[in-house]
């Protein structure tokens, strides 16, 4: 039912419907470009909280990160000396890891599409835990 009405909406607006997979692919491509390439040009000055903590002097209580020597610590890649490449690899890896984890989680939690003879309630009871 929902598919039919969506088509109607798009027809009413008189434009071809962009397939869902292209919206998803576009979002992924933009994310990879931002994390892999554009991130190199991001501002490197302290962020709002860091700056405030330095001004007011409470930055001194900060302790080291537990995993400060992990392979992607501080958005670099261990063993890659070129800054552009090091940040780019870390960024692309991060995007893909978040995609797999968040996408896997939401896919597991989602409502299952009702069967043809709509055993609606039966198919939606079990996976939330």
């Amino acid at each position: 039912m929902s598919t039919a009405t969506e088509d109607r909406t798009d027809q009413a607006e008189g434009r071809p419907r962009v397939a869902t997979r292209w919206v998803l692919a576009g979002t992924l491509l933009v994310s990879l470009l931002l994390a892999g390439v554009v991130s190199y040009y991001a501002a490197s000055s302290p962020d709002g909280l860091e700056q405030v903590s330095q001004t007011l002097g409470f930055h001194t209580t900060e302790t080291d990160h537990e995993l400060s020597d992990s392979p992607f610590a501080d958005y670099g890649t261990a063993g890659v000396s070129d800054g552009r490449l090091s940040g780019g690899i870390a960024g692309v890896a991060g995007v893909l890891i978040v995609l797999v984890l968040a996408g896997g989680l939401t896919w597991a939690v989602r409502r299952r599409r009702p069967e043809k003879d709509s055993a609606d309630e039966a198919s939606t009871g079990e996976t939330a835990a």
Partner: peptide, 20 residues
Amino acid sequence: TAPMAGLIAAFIFAVQMLNF
């Protein structure tokens, strides 16, 4: 919407790398 949610998470991760 589930794949969309995964991609939005990935997009937020990417944009959080872009300090302005």
